[in-house]
Design a binder for these strands. Structure first.
Lengths: 346, 346
DNA sequence: GTCAGGCGTTTATACGTATTAATGGGAGCC
DNA sequence: GGCTCCCATTAATACGTATAAACGCCTGAC
C-alpha cells in the first residue's frame, strides 16, 4: 500500500486510521494527520472487495429484483419501491447496489455462474413476484441477511419481509361491496399460487364470512392472462351466476386496465351500472388514468423504506432473528363500484 | 476451501474447474465431475469479493449525482437518465452502484471522509448541474475512468461526456420562431454560468445570426429563480422592448411551469396570443401537463445508455482517451408559440 | 534402461484490508 | 543507571480466489 510509504508508516497504521474509528484513539494525533493527508493527496479509497473479503462490512446494500424491470410498464410498477429503498438507504448512510447484471442475464438466477453475487453487499433487499423459492432457501441456509418486499414463505425457516396487508385490504373491499348490497361477488384470481394471491383469496373468504355470506366456489375463477378478460366473460358471469360485483387482481403491467378499458369502450359492459368492479391492488401509475377505478393502493415507498430499516437492523444484530411486518393498504373509492343493479336486487 | 477437501483435490484444481472455463480442459474429466458434484452438494458459490480482489475489477459501474435526487420532482427529472444508465449497465453485464450515501451526506462531496468512494466501482457515470469542478479535476488527475452526462469542461485536460446538443436545439428554436415572423425574441437564461446555459446562449446567438437578426443584449435577461417570473415582467418586456416571443430555460424542478401556469390562470398573459413562449428543454415529466408547451426534449435515456457504453469502452482500453459526444434534441411543437401578435407586426 | 516430454495436479504467491500479537522506545520510578 | 511499564507502531496472519510456476508421473522413443 503506497499510502503507507507516502506517510512513512506501516500499512497497519493506515488501516487503523482509515477504518478504525474506534481503535484510532490509540494513534498519535500527528501520525493520524499525516496519514489522512497522504490519503487525501493520493485520492485513496478503501477497496471494497478486500474489505468485505476480510469479513468487514463495505456499507453496501443490494437490491435484487426477480423480474426484469426494464419494460417501462413494469419498471413503473416497481419504481416506487425503488424510490423508498434508495431514499432510506441514503438516509442510513449506505450505498445502493442494483444487481442489474444478474437481473438481465439469460438464466436470471442469483446463483448464476456459481457465484452468489449478492454477497458483494452487506445485505440485500429482494423484490419480485415470481420468486424462486429454492434460491430463497439457499439464501436462508447461508444465512445471508436479506429482507423481502412482499410476504414470502419458505419451507425451512422464516424469512424477513415487509408485506402489504392484502388480507385486510381485500376483506375490507368485500365489506365495502356488501355495504352497498352486493352478495354475489366474483373473485378473479391470478392462476399462479403466489403468496399475494393466496392472501387476497384469504381476505376474500374472510370478508364474505364477516358479511355472513357463504362462499360459492364457482365465484372464484382463475385468470391466466388479464388480457383475455372480455365482455363476454363478464356478461356470462352476470347471467349465469347472478354476479353483481367483481374483484380482480391487477398485474404489474397494464394488461388488465387495457382489457377493462376495451370493454368499456365497446360499451358492452358498463361499470358500475351493469356490474361493480374493484381492483385488488393498483395498476402501474404511469397508465393514463382514463378511469378512476375503485381499488386499494400499497404503500410502496414506505414498504421500501421499512425494508431497508429492517435490513440495517438485521446487520446490526449479529443474532439476527427474522422479522415480519405488514403495512396497511389505502382504500381508493374511485367510481367503478355502485349499488346492485336494479334487476338483480334480492 | 472445504470443497477441495470434500473432493479430495487441491484448492487450485477447484478454482480451475469452477472459473476456468478456458483452462479447465486441462483437467481430467473424472476430476472435474467430482469437483462439480462436491460443489453442488455443498451449495457452493464463489466469493465475489475474493474474486474481484484478485482480478482488480469488480464489475461495478457507479452513478453519482451532484444534486440530491430525492425531492420527487428532481428525481423525476433525473429518472430517465437513470433508466438509461441502468438498462445499458445491465446489458453490458455490470452491476450499478448508486452513491446515495455520498449524495445525501451533509458535505456532498465525492471526497467526503478523505476518501474517494467512487473508486469502489470500476468506473463511474456522473450527473448533475452544479458540478464541483475542482473535484472533477481531481478525478481527472487520478485518472479514474468516468463519463459525465452533460457537456462539462475542466481546466486541465478533457473529460469524457455525453451531452445534449443545446446549441443546435436552441438555434433551431430561434429559426422556428423567425419562420413565424418573430424578430424580438427574449432569452431568459439561468443566472449561473454553467455549460448548458452557455450552450443555449451560444445557440441563441447563432440562431439570430442565421436569421439575419442583430443581437439586442437587453433581450438576454438573467433569471435567478423561475418562480419570480410574473405577468408584470412579461408585460413589461412586451411594452418596453417590443418582445413577441420568449425563450426560457426550465429548471430541473417544476418552478418554471408553476409560474407560467399561474400567469395563464390569472389570464394576465395569454400564450401564444399575447406572446409566444418556448422552453429550452423539458420540465420534469411528472408535472401534470395542463399545457403542451412548445419545447425541445433531451434524449435522456439514450444519453444514459451512451454514457455507459462510453464508460465500458474506457475500461476496455487501457490507454483511455477522452471522448465527447453530443446527441440531438427533439423539437416538440406544442401549442405555446404562434404568429406575431397583430399589434406588434412590423 | 534411461531420458525427454506432455499432461494432470499441486504448491506458492498475490490481491488489499482488518486484526491480534509482538516489538520497540521512552518515560517514570526506585 | 537500570528496571518496569505503557503506549504507539509494526509484523504477521487470515480472508477466498486466480494464476504462474513447479512438480510428479506416465508414456514413448532410442
Amino acid at each position: 500500500m503506497d499510502i503507507a510509504r507516502r506517510a512513512g508508516v506501516s500499512q497497519a497504521t493506515v488501516s487503523l486510521v482509515i477504518s478504525g474509528g474506534a481503535a484510532s484513539d490509540q494513534i498519535a494525533e500527528s501520525t493520524r494527520q499525516a496519514v489522512l493527508a497522504a490519503a487525501t493527496e493520493l485520492g485513496y479509497s478503501a477497496n471494497v472487495a478486500a474489505r468485505s473479503l476480510k469479513g468487514g462490512r463495505n456499507h453496501l446494500l443490494g437490491l435484487y429484483t426477480f423480474e426484469p424491470v426494464f419494460p417501462t410498464d413494469q419498471h413503473d410498477f416497481y419504481y416506487p419501491f425503488l424510490l423508498g429503498v434508495e431514499e432510506e438507504t441514503a438516509a442510513q448512510g449506505y450505498d445502493l447496489l442494483l444487481f442489474s447484471s444478474v437481473t438481465s442475464a439469460a438464466d436470471r438466477s442469483i446463483y448464476a455462474g456459481g457465484a452468489n453475487r449478492l454477497k458483494l453487499a452487506d445485505g440485500c433487499v429482494l423484490l419480485g413476484r415470481n420468486v424462486r423459492h429454492e434460491e430463497l432457501n439457499a439464501l436462508v441456509q447461508e444465512d445471508f441477511p436479506f429482507v423481502f418486499i412482499g410476504r414470502r414463505e419458505v419451507t425451512d425457516g422464516e424469512i424477513s419481509y415487509v408485506g402489504a396487508d392484502y388480507v385486510a385490504a381485500t376483506s375490507a373491499m368485500v365489506a365495502e361491496l356488501h355495504r352497498r348490497g352486493h352478495e354475489r361477488i366474483l373473485y378473479l384470481r391470478a392462476i399462479e399460487d403466489t403468496e399475494p394471491t393466496r392472501d387476497r383469496e384469504q381476505g376474500y373468504r374472510a370478508g364474505l364470512a364477516a358479511a355472513g355470506i357463504e362462499v360459492d366456489e364457482r365465484l372464484i375463477q382463475g385468470l391466466a392472462d388479464p388480457a383475455e378478460l372480455s365482455a363476454e366473460h363478464v356478461l356470462h358471469w352476470i347471467g349465469r351466476y347472478g354476479v353483481t360485483a367483481i374483484l380482480v387482481e391487477p398485474t404489474e403491467d397494464n394488461r388488465l386496465v387495457d382489457a377493462l378499458t376495451a370493454m368499456t369502450d365497446g360499451a358492452r359492459v358498463r361499470f358500475p351500472e351493469d356490474c361493480s368492479i374493484a381492483l385488488l391492488g393498483e395498476p402501474p401509475s404511469w397508465t393514463p388514468q382514463l378511469r378512476d377505478w375503485t381499488r386499494f393502493s400499497l404503500p410502496r415507498a414506505e414498504m421500501g423504506r421499512e425494508a431497508v430499516r429492517m435490513l440495517v437492523g438485521l446487520l446490526g444484530d449479529a443474532r439476527s432473528t427474522s422479522h415480519q411486518v405488514t403495512l396497511p393498504c389505502t382504500f381508493v373509492p374511485g367510481d367503478s363500484i355502485g349499488p346492485v343493479p336494479r334487476g338483480d336486487q334480492a
